[in-house]
Design a protein around this nucleic acid. Structure first.
Length: 187
DNA sequence: CTTTCGATGATCT
DNA sequence: GATCATCGAAAGG
């Protein structure tokens, strides 16, 4: 019996973000290949965890390998994976998927047909997968979550993070090389 | 193709 | 009162 490969979430968020590219993420069987991620860390002014624990970011300071879900601009939900050890405050934002499973369910939830627009952005990913605050704190290695690392290391592109006003020059955005499902092209 | 702007509510100062 | 890890529609080139 060959043991199922897993992601090591106790690693720095930058490493986890890079290694997550190409992994398959499903929630209740709906999901796809992760094609875009961003890393956030405790010493990072752009991170929710910068400045220490609070009500919103509490999960970021919990054990690694759990989901951190927050509300963005009062409208959208965004999904993160907690990294490092409990108390540290690091995470990876899941920014885009290439849809592979449950396309009809995603189209229902998103209210549109174009595959390119189903999961190309963090708010879109959460809506397509049915992620809400109820998923905050859940383990990623148990249902409804399912996560499978790529069989082979894919080509990964690097860039600066999107939509932040602090630490804009930090190159902690990662994308699957050649993917047309990223939220924005890599320069 | 690009830029701009409103929506909408929790969080923080 | 200001900011915000966004999205989608609208307007402009």
């Amino acid at each position: 019996m060959k043991r199922q490969a897993v992601i090591d979430f106790s690693a720095p968020s930058v490493d986890v973000a890079r290694r997550l590219i190409g992994a398959v993420l499903q929630v209740d069987g709906v999901g796809g290949r992760i094609v875009e991620t961003e890393a956030y860390d405790a010493d990072d002014p752009a991170s929710h965890s910068f400045g220490g624990p609070s009500t919103r970011n509490a999960t970021m300071f919990g054990p690694p390998g759990h989901a951190y879900v927050y509300r963005s601009y009062g409208i959208h939900w965004c999904l993160n994976f907690v990294c490092r050890e409990a108390g540290h405050g690091a995470g990876v934002l899941i920014r885009a998927l290439e849809p592979t499973d449950g396309l009809d369910r995603m189209r229902e939830r998103r209210g549109l047909d174009d595959v390119r627009l189903l999961c190309s952005g963090p708010g879109r990913v959460a809506q397509a997968l049915g992620i809400t605050r109820s998923h905050d704190g859940m383990r990623l290695d148990r249902p409804p979550f399912h996560l499978r690392p790529p069989a082979l290391p894919p080509g990964v592109l690097t860039g600066v993070r999107i939509g932040i006003s602090k630490a804009r020059d930090v190159p902690w955005r990662f994308g699957l090389s050649g993917s047309s499902f990223v939220s924005r092209r890599f320069s």
